[in-house]
Design a protein around this nucleic acid. Sequence first.
DNA 1: GATGGATGTCATTCT
DNA 2: TTAGAATGACATCCA
Length: 668
Amino acid sequence: MSSCKTSEFTFQSSVHSTHVLRCLDEQRRKDLLCDMTVMVENRGFRAHRSVLASCSEYFSTRMNNHTGPGLIISLPDELTAEGFEPLLQFAYTSKLLFTKENVLEIHNCATVLGFKNLDQACFDFILPKFFDSSKSSSKVQRSCCKTKCWRAKDESSFKNDGANDTGDVSSAAQLSKKQEQNVSSNLSETAVRTCSPCPVETEADTETESDYSSLCPKYRKFQLACGKGQSNTDTEPENTESSCSLNCLPCSSSEKCESADTLSSKTSTGIIEEDAASFFCPLAKQSPVETPLNLCSGKSSPQMCPVTQGSFPPPQSAGKVAESSSVRVSGKECIMSDCRTGTVCPNPSTEKRSSVEMEVANQLSAWPDIYSSCVSEPVSSSYGQGMAVKSSELQWLKQLECPFLRDLGAVDAQVRCSEVTSRSAECSYISSINSGEDSDSFDTEGDSESCTSEQASLLFAQMQLPFSVAGIVSLSRNDFQQMLKTQQMTREQLDFVHDVRRRSKNRIAARRCRKRKLDCIHNLECEIERLRSEKEKLTAEKRQLDQLRLKTRENYSVLYDRLCAEAKLQPEQLQVFAKYTSLAECPFSTHLSTKAQLYHPSEPELQPRASCLGTDTGIYEPGTSTRSVNTQNLAASDLRSTEPPHTGNNKTMSISTDQISKPETDQS
DNA sequence: GATGGATGTCATTCT
DNA sequence: TTAGAATGACATCCA
């Protein structure tokens, strides 16, 4: 405590600025404390001078000489309200909403007004995406226009970029020259940055496919066939990792281009958000609950739970983290974030996570093996340093509400197991190894296979190996071999270490594999359920359509008969009529053909008119050789039986097969 | 004692 | 060519 009194503490909230901005935006909307009006195209926009002056060089310059109240600034004629309004919103929300239609206007306004953080480079990236003929605006636009994503560029290159842009945005380029003289002086001195062309996917479908890239071929095929995302596997660290690797594609440059926002793929409206959190894995924003721990490509993540070099924060502090914040204690920074909200606490001063943080992230990904290993291994080594913690020091992790740590309850069993194991004086596994038996023997001699990692850890201690099981598992191959080189180990020890590493890796792989299998089974079950319900729905729809079709057919039949009766068509006319109405898809083509057949000139002896006159001589005699067209379908007859008497005209369609010269072959 | 789930390990294949 | 990951098969433990 005495040292704490003399230490200097800094609390830095990453959400404070957001809150302030939000309040200012609310004030603007309510016209509270607004001290200026911007006139564009006869439209007035109320705003705060300080906000606009801090965002725009243009406003900053214009306001220098005005200190009185009621300042009204009219924008140049070439600017439009359509272009200015999104910029005003951007000034207050750090989000730029744009469409293909107004992006040019916005670009013009931003250029003229010298909006900071909306550099030319941003539009350099966006505009080609919009106006490239091969791209559709409805596609996903991924922008890499984060300020952190931009690399410093000299003014000349900036101008070159601007020249390159003329192909797409000629009007904007024309404006830029004149406007640069006024406002871009500051832009240039602030090291105009451009966006390195991150190799991001711009096609939504490509992104979807990439999502499945982490799956094994078999399951990938299934997932692709199902067209489903990794609904259940999202909570799995390795899948999160794969997703992150997709969304956090590194820039081609060496700059720390963490990610680009995934814009909405369903609308053509883009959103560029200048948010600290957005510099990192977008999954944090997309599904914060489903993304427990961001382990982008095995690297550390700002979503990392509180971890420091061997000194963990107390449970109460970790468990009550209400908002993203970073606490700097004596020069060391503890990253604290709320896993539930997905907020992050990027440290602006540190570009990379410490190796310990990265190591812990890796170790957590292998949870709970590492957890149990950590508990049972008080190994102090450069390799195991990050993991050599007591179980009591890890208890605070359980108090976090990170979904990733949900299984801690299950882990407790292993912890207890490991503790018991560590207390046991004898271990058959150890004895077998020490006796010089083949390492395979410990497969069958272990008391519990769930404790084999702890037993191996114990053996490490027995063999005085200065590293942990978790350590050698998490190391890359090069690091692992380098580590072995630094150690003076016997052949037996080397074999043993290699064996443990291989088995541990395979153990983890087997878990992953089984988890995938279960997910696959679950997905299949869901798919079966979905298909079943879809089938029922389609069946009901088909039934409805069938009834409707029969009804229509009957109505049409009635109309046809009435037409025949009223028009008193001659057989030749009926034939022609039937010819031009007997479309293939017409349900009455057969009917008409039959009628036409009835009136065929070669059969003058037939008396078709009898059936067309609506008389009962049309012969409908159930049980006889007569056949009704409508009785070709049982459902039709059922329907007729429920129809009112007016459908009795159907009888007129009844045809005696005796009257037809050749037998009717259509029995269907 | 039978049984099914969970897990570890090995051998093989795939990437 | 090789390392690592994935996975089927088998064995074991345990409820």
